[in-house]
Nucleic acid binder design. Structure first.
Lengths: 94, 94
DNA sequence: CATTAGCGTAACCCGAAACGTTACGGATTA
DNA sequence: TAATCCGTAACGTTTCGGGTTACGCTAATG
């Protein structure tokens, strides 16, 4: 289990995609083809990156959709691991 | 973009976890702590692997939760890429 | 042959999450 | 002051994971 709470991908988007280019949340949302609210929720960690959003990011910023989704997986998984002990699961294999 | 439709992770679960040990769907579902329907849906590609389910799999089969979720990401992403051209996205960076 | 176990899945309910629109208040800037 | 930009609350829609119940099919077994 990873030790530290990984940052939500929204922070990375803000730091790596918006700020360097001086993009406004409103401008970026329009470019991505989503509402300002949707992008704002992601940037502030209140929504995750959906597969479709990952593709949008890959087009707009010429990046890898997989890398965005992978970061989201790390984030989701870390939180799921926090509840590991609460799950009633029986070991079925060595 | 990946060329071929990646298999849904359920096929891998069936082939790598259930069949080698001779586990029935019912037994595996009980061990995982989910309903038979839920596991059946995953095995037959009608549901994805949620973060929580990935943790359950990692406990029951002593595997990596991350690997299960990564496979799910590959699968989801491939399907999301299929609709890439339908997205109205403007390039915001080189 | 009749019974049982295992399986897929349809019908129905619930809750969570992504996304949209509208609208408000606060902060910053022209 | 007026115009932007932003976060976010409130509302609705859609999708999806998950549970329960129940049905029909198939294969194995008494």
């Amino acid at each position: 289990m990873r030790m530290h709470n990984p940052p939500h991908p929204g922070e990375i988007i803000k730091a790596l995609c918006l700020e360097p280019v001086g993009l406004t949340v409103t401008e970026a949302a329009e470019g991505l083809g989503v509402s300002r609210k949707t992008l704002s929720a992601i940037l502030n960690g209140r929504s995750g990156i959906s597969p479709e959003m990952a593709v949008r990011l890959s087009i707009a910023f010429n990046t890898s959709a997989e890398s965005w989704l992978s970061q989201q997986v790390q984030y989701d998984l870390w939180h799921a691991e926090q509840g590991r002990k609460a799950l009633k699961v029986i070991k079925l294999a060595a």
